[in-house]
Amino acid sequence: MLFSKKKRKGQPLPAKRREDMPNVKEGLTFKQWKAKHAPNHKWRNKRWAVLLTLNTLFWASFAFDISVLEGSLSGSRFFGIYLMDLFNSLQQVLIRVRTGNFGMLTTNFFIGIGVIATFYFLAGGRTFCSWICPYHFLAENAEKLHNWLVKKKKIKEHSYAIGVKYVAFAMFLVLAFVTKQLVFEDMNPVGIISRSIIYGPSVLLLWVLGLLLFEIFHTKRFWCRYVCPMGVTYSAIGKFSPTAIKFDLDKCGHCRDCQDVCLVPHELWFVKRGEATKEVHFAGADCTRCGLCVDTCYGDALTITVKGIDSLL
């Protein structure tokens, strides 16, 4: 979606009446209802555990010379199976088509792309971001600090059009094609952090620090929301994934606390009273499947589901 004005399919359903609100159905006031179903951190804890474990595994595989997860986030080998980062590979293929060296690429390269593409299609959306990306881990916590500063009125909020990330994506591809360099990889905070964890700190961590400070004091999630082409690639792969965040209009109290915690709030547009066009919605391609909204939701209106087999689960 290029403009923040959503091209929503169909007319919105009529806004929910008072007697249909989940708290009224339970015979509680809204406050009591929220207090009864207090948020937890179930998914966040799982997610952080996965993220930290994987990045530790990368480090441990090199530090202790164990063949578990070798390499770094731009390309690695998991128990001997190659894994390739998709945006990096896209640039690689593009440059090689230009230079005529496409045939040199190894079978392992294509196996790596295949495995990663399949995995992220099944996982859906920008799962990579919130479950694996080490920069995300820092930025997610920086975002909390940013939100706190905004709340305390120390800084002002800045936001741009979400769609500029597609412009950045295209520009990085053009740059790669023109310069015959993996330009993005030289400034990619994901790769820089990953390599710094595994092979020792790089001076480029200063650039990452600068980005984080900018995100804390100026624009919330600047890199992830408006620049990162890795995220764009993964969201394209995971757009039609069976795994998704499911929204059940019937159970929703329209408190919109989920949008407050959501890392990509534009994907939860349907939680606003009178916006939903269907009884059931699924969060879009930018959704990172982080589960923060699921942890927060008082009425269990938001759940992580696998389409097709959700009735079996």
């Binding site: 230079t99 060296n101 993996l182 092979y199």
Partner: peptide
């Protein structure tokens, strides 16, 4: 010239 784009900086050669 080719090495500069072909190398994705994964470090597998370093590890092995």
């Amino acid at each position: 010239d080719d090495f500069m784009y072909a190398c994705i900086k994964c470090g597998l050669c370093v590890q092995i």
